[in-house]
Simulated scan of single mutants.
Amino acid sequence: MVDQVTATLLRAAELTAAGQPGQAVALLRPVLLSHPEHADAWCHLAAAHLDAGEPDPALTAAKRAIVLGGDPAWAQRLAALALAELDRPAEAVVAARESVRCKPLDWRCHVVLAEALASHPTLAGDALGAARRAVELAGDQARPYQVLGDAAMRARDWATAQWAYRAALDIDPHDPEVRANLDAVHRNRARAAGAGGLTGADLPQALAGAERALRALVRRLVGLVAVGTLLLLLAGLPAPSTALTAPALLLVGLAVAVAALPLARMPAVGRRLVARVARERRLVGAAAALLALAVLLTAGWALALASGTRGLSTLAVAFGCALAAGVLCRPGARPRHPR
């Protein structure tokens, strides 16, 4: 039976590597039902969930593997990746550092630590050192060089970024993301970005910050609008009364205030960067558009209700738009990491 379990784990790893993590999860569940104390199986399950863009169950599986005492470096590394995708950077750094402590010569642990540090609001400057250590340990792998290039770009160390991306392409010349980043490095000092005086050298970091700000704003609004429209729907059953007009307009006003106040506090260049992110990052831009539509539909429903029109269909569509925005802006799939 042990051999059968090992074969199943190998097959699950192959499916995950082949871009079929859902099938890997389905294959692993029966194994864990019959062998719930198998720590490696929980690690394989966590890796499959991560590649499927499901950080919550990935974190649960990684924690289970940690408790069972399997490979602690692997389990902590998986937990760090899941925590990073859940926007919990401080915990991600703790888990990544623990993975490095368990296996200080495993380059994958240093790669995950570099990525966790890069997403931390105050520790991003340490990512460069972690990435350099990964390169020292695995100079024949492309991924450490890519992570070093990413960390150098954030630090605006263009010479290191150019060297690292070129080294990554020497090993894997077919990686389009690395090639695109190398092209960006080449353009940085050659042109202005046209974003309120920002030069190309400053643009990647500024855009990354604007995207984080927009995602955080969208997530706050999703909670407010989705919960508010759901409560209005429940209160309006089976037929809404005009008494719901005031709460609906209050919800619209709160949503506008939550959206407008952070933007009003930004400098003009920050607002332009947020607008650029909304145009160029399709998922977060679509989520913002759906939220705006949900607020407009709620306002229209409230005004129609005040004029005597009855019905909940418009409000139901607004609720659906808010839910769809939450799905689009959830923490999810990112470039594949080493497992």
Rank of each mutant, 00 (worst) to 15 (best):
A24K: 10
R191N: 10
A75G: 00
A134C: 02
A195T: 14
A96W: 01
V295H: 06
M1H: 13
A243R: 14
A90S: 09
A92L: 04
A47V: 08
L123T: 02
R279N: 09
V274M: 02
R77S: 05
K103M: 11
A130Q: 03
A47T: 10
D126T: 06
G332K: 05
G308E: 01
G129W: 11
I171R: 13
G228S: 01
A12K: 00
L261R: 12
R108W: 02
D175H: 07
A292Y: 02
D56K: 15
S313L: 13
L59G: 03
A114M: 06
F319P: 10
L169S: 10
S241D: 00
D170W: 13
T309N: 05
A255W: 00
L250A: 15
M266T: 03
T199K: 09
W301K: 02
A287T: 09
Q205E: 14
E136H: 10
A292L: 12
L273I: 12
P176N: 08
W74M: 14
A195P: 07
L83N: 04
T160H: 08
A161F: 09
I66W: 08
R11S: 12
R310Y: 00
A168D: 05
V31L: 00
A52W: 02
A13I: 09
A116G: 03
L249F: 03
G209Y: 11
G236L: 01
A41G: 07
A58Y: 05
A46Y: 13
A288T: 09
T199L: 12
Q162L: 10
T229Y: 00
R166P: 14
T160S: 14
A210H: 04
A208P: 12
A47H: 15
L291S: 13
E211F: 08
R276P: 08
R334E: 08
E211W: 04
A292C: 05
R88Q: 15
D202K: 11
A275G: 13
V225Q: 03
A26S: 08
A286S: 12
L128T: 05
A61Q: 08
L59C: 06
R77C: 05
I66R: 14
R279V: 15
D51H: 15
C329I: 14
C329H: 12
